[in-house]
């Protein structure tokens, strides 16, 4: 891992990321903003899944918010990669970062499962909907919890002080 980090640090791309002083704070800002959009999109979808009566039908909300969710996830990935390039030692050597990556992968899988589930729930008759509805409620809650966990574990802030 150390050798990989040293190689990564010596790449021209990593060097330029670190040379531009405002790039890292800007990427962090975009990362936080995109993270907020992912969380909010899931909260808004969950609110519909949990309490089904409401102004906007679940199907409409899912169709409207999923593109935002995936785009925000794209921004999150790109800015995250730039941040790893800029600070490989701080991220890759940090156990919290590995925990975060793990939670994140599970969270993405959960999001895909939830999205597939919701797309299938909507056109079904009411009798079948109740069972899937309960499942979807649990899946919605689990997805939100996983994303909250991934955010909290964020880039090893927990032990940043110890490693420095």
């Amino acid at each position: 891992m150390i050798a990989f980090i040293q190689w990564l640090q010596s790449t021209p791309l990593s060097l330029s990321v670190r040379r531009i002083s405002w790039l890292i704070p800007m990427m962090q800002t975009l990362h936080i903003l995109a993270n907020g959009l992912v969380l909010a999109a899931i909260i808004m979808i969950d609110l519909r899944v949990w309490r089904r009566a409401g102004a906007e039908p679940l199907a409409d909300r899912v169709r409207r918010l999923l593109p935002w969710l995936w785009s925000a996830l794209g921004v999150l990935t790109v800015t995250g990669l730039v941040l790893v390039l800029g600070t490989p030692r701080r991220t890759l050597l940090d156990p919290t970062f590995q925990v975060k990556m793990l939670i994140m992968v599970v969270a993405i899988v959960a999001t895909v499962v939830l999205a597939t589930m919701l797309r299938r729930v909507v056109p079904e008759p009411a009798s079948a909907r109740r069972m899937t509805g309960l499942l979807a409620s649990v899946a919605g809650a689990a997805t939100l919890l996983l994303w909250l966990g991934a955010t909290i574990a964020g880039r090893g802030r927990w032990i940043a002080n110890v490693i420095g």
Partner: peptide, 22 residues
């Protein structure tokens, strides 16, 4: 760990505020 833990929760909370307001 106090500062780091608080900062993590602070950033999570601010991210949710931003997302919901957005």
């Amino acid at each position: 760990w106090g500062f780091s833990a608080l900062l993590s929760v602070h950033i999570l909370a601010v991210a949710i505020v931003f997302g919901m307001i957005a």
